[in-house]
Computed example of a mutant assay.
Amino acid sequence: MAMTSDRIPLPRELATAVVNKAKDTSTIATLSPSSPMVFTDKDFLMFNGKSEAEVVAEGQSKSSYEQDVTTVSAKRFKVQTTTRVTNELQWADEDARTQIVQAIQLDQAQAIGRALDYVIYHGLNPKSGEALTGYDPLTASAVQVPYSEDDEIANVDALSDALNQTYDINAVALSRTWASRLRKVRVPSTGMRFYPEIPLNLQTGSLDGITAATSGTVNGAKAKTDTGVLAIMGDFSLIQWGMVRDMFATVIPYGDPDNAGTDLQNVNMVAYRTEAVFAYAVLDPKGFAVLKATTEAGA
């Protein structure tokens, strides 16, 4: 019997699309420039200049001051993200396939960037939202500023007042929650926005004259326990960080690379993995002030 064309399975068109959602980014990468790191332990010598000129009379003995020099050691951590996708992606035309693969790699690169904030700010593993052993969160050792629900302008002033006598403030990292609240503050007499530099999408580049960045990493949106953190202000040059090894991507066609319990080939999938190694040091945590609301846990 001759084979008829209606019994031949014809390939269906594979439509691909990339959905762009609001993405949290690393505020540290935005506010503190990276510096090259090598794969060795690195110590930073801390020099806190405290000399003052002395007026001396003719023949008067001259006094001196003692300068303490302390060291801060950089800490390394490795971060990775693995994404499984159907191998039907291989059937797509080259342009569509490239678009999806690029979207996956961009998504992973952004996730790795966010990890920098989660580790330094909160000492958290962003994938699990749980605390990392051996990491000191900046938000715990910085100057603590309690949040007042009655006056958002006073909260901004309280952050700066906590530092201005000792440190030069150059930037502030805002949580999406607090950026939204600040955007809604209005001048009573005119109804104009008090902080017009905060746009509707909350991605502000400045706040009250200093550089600013907004992200859910500031309050640790992935944290299992509410951090209560609303903003971090300070001298972001005190955060020294860099990549020990550049990010690299790997395509994994088989095996169980993420311990999901299934072999990739058995479920017709392929995995994309991106890895990086960071090193960082917070030279002086007291150069930062953290605006923190009271949480149920009492934080």
Rank of each mutant, 00 (worst) to 15 (best):
G113K: 07
R114C: 00
A115M: 07
A115G: 14
D117L: 04
Y118W: 12
H122P: 03
H122Q: 03
G123L: 09
L124E: 11
P126Y: 06
S128Y: 02
G129T: 11
E130M: 09
E130P: 04
A131N: 11
A131Q: 13
A131I: 12
T133P: 00
T133F: 08
G134N: 08
Y135P: 07
P137R: 02
L138K: 04
T139F: 11
T139H: 11
T139V: 15
S141C: 06
A142V: 13
V143C: 00
Q144M: 09
Q144K: 14
V145P: 05
V145I: 02
Y147F: 14
Y147T: 00
D150F: 09
D150T: 13
E152A: 13
E152W: 05
E152P: 08
V156E: 14
A158G: 04
A158R: 04
A158H: 00
L159A: 01
D161K: 15
D161Q: 15
N164F: 07
N164T: 10
Q165C: 02
T166A: 15
T166W: 09
Y167M: 00
Y167D: 05
Y167Q: 00
D168V: 12
I169M: 09
N170F: 01
A171L: 07
A173V: 09
S175L: 00
S175M: 01
T177C: 07
T177W: 05
T177D: 14
R181G: 10
L182G: 04
L182M: 08
L182N: 05
K184N: 13
V187M: 12
T190P: 00
T190C: 01
G191A: 10
M192I: 09
F194R: 15
F194M: 13
P196D: 10
P196Q: 08
E197Y: 11
E197F: 09
E197S: 15
E197C: 11
I198V: 10
P199Q: 10
P199L: 08
P199E: 10
P199T: 12
P199D: 11
L200H: 12
L200R: 14
N201E: 14
L202Q: 08
Q203W: 07
G205Y: 08
G205Q: 15
S206D: 10
S206A: 14
L207W: 00
L207N: 01
G209T: 13
G209H: 11
I210A: 02
I210Y: 06
T211L: 14
T211H: 11
A212R: 13
T214Q: 05
T214I: 06
T214R: 02
G216D: 15
V218H: 03
N219W: 03
N219E: 09
G220Q: 07
A221L: 09
K222T: 15
K222C: 11
A223N: 08
A223P: 05
G228F: 02
G228H: 01
V229E: 07
L230D: 04
A231Y: 01
I232V: 15
I232E: 06
F236D: 09
F236G: 08
F236H: 12
S237E: 10
Q240R: 15
W241C: 05
W241A: 02
W241V: 03
W241R: 06
G242C: 08
M243S: 13
